[in-house]
Design a protein around this nucleic acid. Structure first.
Lengths: 192, 192
DNA sequence: ACTCGAAGTGGAGTCGTCCTCCACTTGCTG
DNA sequence: CAGCAAGTGGAGGACGACTCCACTTCGAGT
């Protein structure tokens, strides 16, 4: 999943992963203008290791973004195994909020990357959409979710979270909005 | 024109103007990520003076942008006085290319400013549109330019220059494109 | 014409970040 | 388990942002 083109030595791979994890966390928390030295420190590796793996800041931002998406889409199978589909969808949405938070912190840098011709955006968008589809389908089969909606619509509706005003109780507002959306997809009322 | 809200001492105003001029030039040539110290040096003033006038980089970028637009729109009257309107339009277009070049170097920073709620964009867009309108009208009255087009359309068409691929012979391509546009507005063919 | 307080100046200095370099450590292969 | 290629970390040089303050200059008032 996180295996880069040329396979690395085991310890090197571990360090690389630690870097991506640290970057994801710090970028989400404080935006992508953070000092790269701090990312290395937070990952518990030297700066040199960071620069060897990610020669430019953008390389690191992109890696963090990809990992974020991979993690969120990878969670679908596990959630479906442990919960009835409607609950799985709800849990998944909660995660999605976190993803959006992360992406928000990164959005400026991301736009720059996208404009520079790299097509990660199409990639990841597709992945997210598939994740949605899988959850919806499972719910429909189980009879707990409506069958007359399509995944892309739901996905797009979820995107509206991005349009909320930027500050203050944003996170709560977003969570409520997504919760509402799931309820709309359920048969019957949610417990109060 | 460039008089700030609170009037400055004569020498201070001169320095401020020098700074804006230097910034316009350097931003256009090398983008807005340039070292601010270099701008001060190029303007022949100390860094402190720069920071006193423009506390943040954005303040300076905005000032440079405004001055660029003011200069370009301010040129209309002079051109119309010295040339028949169709020629004036052509000359003006040439200047416009330079303006776009400048703006291109600044475009990233500008978008950031625009997104941060500042409404210079609307302002300057309006000013540019007026400039176009004035030139067109003069040509129509003189009978050398077509009367069945409206200024906003021409303005918008001109914006297409922004969409050209970013590199290489861009400047020449842009110039040709604009030249073509003017020819289309003229009655009769241009000399070969 | 001159004085003098306020306004303005510049550049040296501090601080934080980027990025490289290389002596050392570690994983892996035979 | 030996040897070497792969990988490491962190000190340090370079550079940019921004501040501080002793000094200069302007221009209003007389």
């Amino acid at each position: 999943m996180t295996t880069p083109p040329k396979s690395l030595r085991a310890d090197a791979q571990r360090n690389r992963d630690k870097l991506v994890a640290a970057a994801s966390e710090l970028f989400a928390r404080s935006g992508t203008d953070i000092a790269l030295d701090a990312v290395a420190a937070h990952a518990g590796v030297g700066v040199a290791t960071l620069y060897r793996n990610f020669p430019t800041r953008d390389d690191l931002v992109e890696a963090a973004y990809r990992s974020e998406v991979a993690q969120i889409t990878g969670a679908v199978a596990g959630l479906l195994a442990e919960h009835p589909p409607d609950v799985a969808l709800e849990r998944w949405m909660e995660r999605y909020v976190d993803y959006v938070v992360a992406k928000r912190g990164m959005s400026d840098a991301l736009r720059a990357i996208i404009e520079s011709g790299n097509d990660i955006y199409a990639d990841t968008r597709g992945q997210l959409q598939e994740a949605f589809a899988a959850l919806l389908e499972a719910g429909v089969e189980a009879g707990t979710l409506r069958s007359d909606v399509n995944a892309e619509d739901v996905f797009r509706a979820t995107g509206s979270v991005f349009l909320l005003p930027q500050q203050d109780g944003w996170r709560e507002q977003a969570a409520r909005l997504l919760g509402l959306l799931v309820d709309g997809l359920r048969y019957g009322r949610p417990a109060p």
